[in-house]
């Protein structure tokens, strides 16, 4: 069976150690979490976790089954094959060194990257997009010399429930 990245959306009760339970269950059974994003929903007592994992359909089904066994898990959905939108966010700091300064300013203008803070010696960009867009931006940022970077896990939302 074909291995690919699956996006799994998990609704959980917002308990102190619910993330540890999920990470522990998957880690303990030998499944890998590629990316992870957690926050509360409109109801404070319920959180949504969006994680991605690479595997074939059988492996992903086993992951879903293992998660479903957890008492604090309300539902588990694989969004890979349902209509959904996906976003990631990257914050990047580029240092405005003498030799790169002009190149960086031009790239920021050309790509219409969002500058969220800048100073004499640095600029911090916020880039959001789906995986392909982020990968493209990363390829363009690389030659400019990334001073520091932080990247969120993927978030995803179905078009309908």
């Amino acid at each position: 069976m074909e291995k690919k990245e699956h996006i799994i959306s998990i609704l959980v009760y917002n308990k102190p150690d619910v993330l540890a339970r999920i990470a522990g269950t998957l880690g303990g059974k030998g499944y890998n979490i590629e990316s992870l994003s957690v926050n509360t929903t409109t109801q404070y007592e319920i959180s949504k976790i969006v994680m991605t994992s690479i595997g074939n359909q059988a492996t992903i089904s086993r992951i879903e089954n293992q998660l479903q066994r957890l008492v604090d898990v309300i539902s588990v959905d694989d969004l890979t094959n349902v209509e959904s939108v996906h976003r990631e966010m990257v914050l990047v700091r580029l240092d405005l060194t003498e030799d790169k300064k002009d190149q960086i300013k031009k790239a920021v203008d050309d790509n219409q990257w969002k500058v969220i803070k800048s100073g004499e010696h640095y600029v911090i960009l916020e880039i959001t997009g789906d995986k392909a867009q982020i990968d493209l931006a990363m390829a363009r940022l690389e030659p400019l010399g990334i001073a520091d970077i932080t990247r969120t896990g993927l978030v995803a939302l179905e078009l309908k429930n």
Binding site: P16, D17, A20, R21, G24, T25, V71
Partner: peptide, 14 residues
């Protein structure tokens, strides 16, 4: 102990 027994209980509580 809840941390230690997380993988070997059905569920646990503090």
């Amino acid at each position: 102990i809840t941390g230690i027994t997380r993988p070997c209980t059905k569920h646990n509580f503090l």
